[in-house]
Design a protein around this nucleic acid. Structure first.
Length: 824
DNA sequence: ACCTCTGGCTGGATAT
DNA sequence: ATATCCAGCCAG
């Protein structure tokens, strides 16, 4: 049996050293490391001997403060023997204050950039499995023969560098995932007053319970004995350890934490772990016996890895692309209910009124939810994190803590460093490349975006939808867009212009961002996407491809967005603007082409075209044309039996040839509307799903009238539960920060606040419309008789009219009829 | 520690 | 009464 080690993470910000030291610790040899006493960051690793570095005038002048040699290890890889740690003042990182190397070498135009060979060359790829053979650590890559096969079958057109690059990506993404043990962790604090929120920075209150739920069916709750509390325990799926002394409880807690390589929490970065750490210190437990360290970005474990799921689920990209927007609230209860169908234990008493059994049950459920969420879908969450970690070259802990812009930044930095390029500062980039030249449609935006075709109102049967696959990433790839190629220095490239702008693109060299995005795009489109929908694979394998496919999609989608994001270190407005400008050019060309072929375009948005195509041949001709003219994949997406358009953009309803109803943008599908109206709307959709022809539509219209009449009378006769009428709207900021206006959900929130209920950003406020001064009441306080039924009828009308108008059904005539009937 | 972008719709609050 | 802004949610 081969002994396996598992290394999670190398980053750029001091992480190399950490990873490096971790590795060294695994070897049996003594290591001496001489560090610069000031401990300045950053540092980089090179295989140049120290003497050579000391002679390097450029480094000297750049303010390198120390040359450090690491010695006396010879057991890892040969290449690492001569590894040298240099500490210089900002050789690469953005934002250095002193004179830096970048001033000595013309940044991105340098032919021979400054040489630095990183530890990355060792391919200490994040979250990779390492095997220990003869005291050497060897990363376990995807099987070479398998990757060779994929390359031959799916990427046979690639050769040379491109092929090597693709091989690296495939070997990394195809490599297996470690099945590491983990445990969920949750703590309960008991304060004197129930309204007081325990503070991790001032941990005056006792830790009364700590629960664990982990792999191999482990379940355990540590409880503090308290006077006057019923301490009987009748068992459960977990075991209980009772402590008379809080210090002993915490020590035991730390012992368990230390025994797991991964500890999962919900908000452990900001609450559980800092609380445990500070409370333990306060009780006099020596620092050396507390396995928790607190950093600027969160809480870490001395030995293992801490994953804060709260941070992860808060990530918009994760929410939308990885979990299909299945959860909306960022609470443990909300996310767990949405993902695994179980929520927290509901309490009718306060914590200090609970018996041991009740407290333990309550606490245990939370850590159990964490475990179940992590284990769901064959450890989907962990695999997703690991894949993102591998793509972004970022430690898995940091993956949870950073947004998509952080991931992309890390990936790009890695690639730039791997090519020995200097990374430009933001100001340098802006100065050299300039700003935007187009004007946005929406006021306050920085540049012009996509086009939307005016829909042709009415009902259209047999509509074919085509779309450009990954339009923006494809444009970045095909048009060589990258920060160093846009508005480049070559006089001869100036004629290579971008429509509607004053920008041009380089013809001489291949853009780095362009090629990176290109590889990611190709690998997703040509290998992972098809494999994810390959029905002949077993479900587990397929879901694995699905995870990779989605992770790649996150990077692709955001790769364009970050270009226009001011806080992004490689912020480059002309790039972002050029991408959308080319997008508009391609899109409008396609629409014109369709028209010239005699095909009617009924709608289109950004990259999709809705065609009334009688002849399939014309559709294929359009697809061919796009490939030949733009080298872009215009793909068949779906056929709608029929589509219903109003005159509004981004608002339509369509029934596909398989009978699936697509609703886009209509009020009836928004998630903040009352379930009452949503259900009524869904009822109508059921009717519409059945329609196959224009004739059937006529008969179904009658049914629809009936459906609406039914729901209308339910409303009118008040046969509803009030929670069915609740609007659920999220607060994006604290109550006080709503200065200019007071929207309805904030009015409701204020009423809750005055009752002592805490409301803050991220909270979803449930309220109903009532007949009183403010017109709104929080759901908790509402009474059926105060409901403002007329307001709801109005809301129902506007929701339904979006569909009824184009179908030429008159809402008022339906409800008019109903009131007439009810008189009779 | 909410933070990839622009375009577009809605209802209600607020200004004119 | 009407126009404009604000805030939330969605399409792509």
């Amino acid at each position: 049996m081969v002994e396996r080690y598992f290394l999670l993470g190398v980053g750029y910000d001091g992480q190399e050293r950490k990873a490096f030291l971790k590795l060294l610790n695994l070897s049996t040899n003594t290591v001496e490391i001489y560090m610069d006493p000031t401990g300045h960051k950053p540092y980089c690793l090179t295989d140049q001997p120290v003497q050579e570095l000391e002679k390097n005038q450029a480094l000297r002048e750049a303010g390198a403060t120390a040359f450090i040699k690491v010695t006396k290890y010879d057991s890892i890889a040969d290449k690492m023997r001569e590894m040298t740690l240099i500490q210089a003042t900002d050789p690469l990182a953005v934002g250095g204050s002193k004179k830096s190397i970048r001033e000595l070498i013309p940044a991105w135009e340098a032919d021979i950039p400054y040489h630095l060979n990183y530890v990355y060359d060792m391919r200490l790829t994040p979250s990779m499995i390492y095997e220990k053979k003869n005291d050497e650590l060897i990363p376990v890559y995807g099987e070479k023969s398998k990757v060779e096969n994929i390359l031959q079958q799916f990427f046979s057109d690639l050769s040379g560098e491109e092929r090597d690059e693709m091989e690296n990506w495939l070997r990394m993404l195809e490599s297996e995932h470690p099945m590491v043990d983990f445990t969920g962790l949750d703590i309960e604090i008991l304060s004197d007053s129930p309204t007081k929120v325990p503070s991790p920075s001032n941990p005056v209150d006792r830790v009364v319970a700590v629960s664990f739920s982990g792999t191999r069916g482990m379940g355990k709750v540590l409880v503090l004995r308290r006077d006057g509390v019923d301490m009987t325990f009748n068992g459960g799926e977990y075991s209980v350890e009772v402590f008379d002394d809080e210090t002993a409880l915490l020590s035991r807690c730390f012992e368990i934490i230390d025994s797991y390589p991964i500890v999962v929490t919900f908000n452990g970065d900001d609450f559980d772990l800092p609380y445990l750490r500070n409370r333990a210190e306060k009780l006099g437990i020596p620092k050396s016996r507390i396995p928790i360290t607190l950093g600027r970005e969160g809480a870490s474990l001395r030995r293992g890895i801490h994953l804060d799921l709260y941070r992860f689920f808060n990530n918009k990209s994760v929410q939308v692309y990885a979990f299909d927007n299945r959860y909306r609230e960022h609470t443990l209860d909300g996310v767990a209910k949405a993902l695994i169908g179980v929520g927290k234990v509901e309490l009718s008493k306060t914590l200090n009124e609970l018996s041991l059994q009740e407290l333990a049950d309550y606490s245990y459920r939370d850590s159990r939810l964490l475990r179940d969420m992590v284990e769901a879908g064959d450890r989907l969450i962990l695999r997703l994190m690991a894949v993102i970690s591998r793509i972004s070259k970022m430690p898995i802990e940091d993956v949870c803590r950073h947004g998509v812009s952080g991931w992309i930044k890390n990936l790009l930095y890695w690639e730039l460093r791997g090519r020995n390029w200097l990374i430009p500062r933001k100001e340098e980039l802006i100065n050299a490349k300039g700003g935007t030249t187009t004007k946005a449609i929406i006021e306050g935006k920085k540049y012009r975006g996509a086009l939307v075709v005016e829909p042709v109102p009415g009902v259209h049967f047999n509509v074919t939808v085509l779309d450009f696959a990954s339009l923006y990433p494809s444009i970045l790839k095909e048009y060589n867009l990258s920060f160093e190629t846009i508005n480049c220095g070559h006089e001869s490239c100036r004629t290579n212009t971008i429509p509607e702008t004053t920008h041009w693109v380089c013809r001489e060299r291949r853009g780095i961002q362009s090629s990176i995005i290109g590889v990611i795009r190709d690998i997703r489109v040509r290998w992972y996407k098809p494999m994810a929908s390959n029905k002949s694979l077993d479900p587990v394998t397929r879901s694995w491809y699905e995870v990779v496919q989605r992770a790649l999609k996150v990077f692709l989608n955001a790769s364009y967005g970050v270009l226009g994001f001011e806080e992004f270190p490689l912020y480059c407005p002309p790039l972002a603007e050029s991408t959308t400008a080319i997008g508009r050019y391609v899109f409008s060309s396609a629409v014109e082409k369709a028209k010239s072929l005699g095909v009617t375009v009924v709608y289109g948005d950004t990259d999709s075209i809705f065609l009334k195509a009688e002849k399939q041949e014309l559709v294929h001709e359009l697809i061919r044309w796009a490939r030949e003219k733009f080298r872009l994949d215009l793909e068949f997406d779906k056929v709608y039996r029929y589509v219903v358009f109003s005159k509004r953009k981004k608002n339509y309803l369509g029934v596909t040839d398989r009978g699936v109803v697509d609703v886009k943008g209509l009020t009836g599908k928004k998630r903040n509307i009352p379930v009452f109206i949503k259900e009524a709307f869904d009822d109508m959709l059921k009717q519409l799903a059945e329609v196959k022809s224009a004739e059937e539509l006529e008969t179904v219209k009658k049914n629809i009238r009936q459906v609406i009449a039914t729901w209308y009378s339910r409303l009118k006769n008040r046969t509803f539960e009030i929670d069915q009428l609740a609007f659920r709207v999220m607060m994006s900021k604290t109550i006080e920060r709503y200065e200019k206006t007071t929207p309805q959900h904030v009015k409701a929130a204020k009423k809750l606040q005055s009752l002592g209920i805490k409301v803050g950003p991220g909270d979803i406020i449930s309220y109903v419309k009532t007949k009183d001064k403010d017109g709104v009441t929080p759901l908790q306080l509402a009474k059926r008789e105060n409901i403002d039924v007329d307001k709801y009828i109005e809301y129902m009308r506007s929701t339904f009219e979006q569909v009824l108008d184009p179908l030429e059904i008159d809402f008022d005539s339906i409800i008019g009829l109903t009131s007439l009937e009810s008189f009779m």
